[in-house]
Design a protein around this nucleic acid. Structure first.
Length: 284
RNA sequence: GAGCGACGAAACUUGC
């Protein structure tokens, strides 16, 4: 049972639909076929792989869905932009929607350009938590309303490192680099994502030296950190520096490879681009 | 009767 669960989770992360389906059939042949826990994981997996119809089908065929089942379905619809369906699932299955489901829908609205709907939902929510507040901060920022984002950030009852990083990005992406820098230095807690966001902010502003300085002083780096630096070098005419960084980077993902191939192409080095493309390892 | 309980929502990087 536990190994089925882990296997499905892996497929969800990797968006491996083929393997996911295989595991699904093996579950159906096993004694665990009725486990609502596994059913929920399968719904999540299908949703993440873009097969919302499958998720809905499993949901329909489940005799006793629980609150997670409903929530997962809402999330799948919302994340894929099926906002009416998400709302409909929520309204027809929940008398009093929980904060997680509402926040899924809220995020769906934001990611698909419906800021007004997001605001209305946020205002109507009986309970909000740090996640819903942070989602709304991001929502205003993505729609260019950085002042409103800041206003919300300042009045939210509780902030965590994700909220702080969201606000940092909100400022940076709306041309307030100095405020972003100040916020960064005042953050009570930073993680690798916060650092990446700060490096990215400098990179976007064309402040290569500042970005490099921040990059070099990061306590911990991850793949995204390296990719931010790669891209920065590539778009600022420093392809050689990108090359050096790329060759010495401990690991590479699809994003890293894409950045390099694209960088060569935009520099009219078609041969190098092809060569790099051919070096991309096959996924297992 | 109460509490807890694996599975659901928010922040950073390429392209779409």
């Amino acid at each position: 049972h536990g190994s089925f669960a882990n296997a499905i989770k892996e497929c969800t992360v990797a968006r491996d639909l083929i393997r996911g389906r295989r595991i699904h059939s093996r579950i159906l042949e096993s004694e665990h076929r009725g486990s609502i826990f596994l059913i929920n994981l399968l719904m999540k997996m299908y949703g993440r792989c873009g097969c919302i119809g499958e998720a809905q089908k499993i949901f329909n065929e489940t005799p006793e869905p629980n609150r997670y089942s409903v929530s997962i379905l809402i999330s799948a619809y919302a994340a894929s932009g099926h906002l009416l369906e998400a709302k409909e699932v929520m309204e027809s299955n929940m008398e009093h929607p929980d904060v997680v489901s509402q926040t899924s829908l809220l995020t769906g609205y934001i990611q698909h350009g419906k800021l007004d709907a997001a605001k209305a939902l946020f205002d109507s929510m009986g309970h909000r938590n740090v996640v819903s507040w942070t989602a709304m901060v991001t929502g205003f920022a993505r729609h260019g309303q950085v002042k409103e984002a800041k206003r919300l950030f300042d009045i939210m009852p509780e902030r965590n490192v994700i909220s702080w990083t969201a606000m940092l990005t909100a400022l940076a992406q709306n041309g307030c680099l100095e405020q972003a820098r100040e916020l960064f230095s005042n953050m009570p807690e930073k993680n690798v994502v916060s650092w990446n966001a700060m490096v990215q902010a400098y990179a976007d502003a064309g402040l290569i030296d500042r970005a490099r300085e921040a990059f070099d002083s990061m306590p911990v780096q991850n793949l995204a950190s390296w990719n931010v630096a790669l891209k920065m070098y590539a778009v600022n005419g420093l392809l050689e520096e990108a090359e050096v960084l790329f060759e010495k980077s401990p690991e590479k993902d699809t994003v890293s490879w894409n950045i390099m191939v694209q960088a060569y192409l935009e520099d009219d080095q078609v041969d190098k681009a092809e060569e790099t493309f051919d070096r991309i390892p096959n996924p297992d």
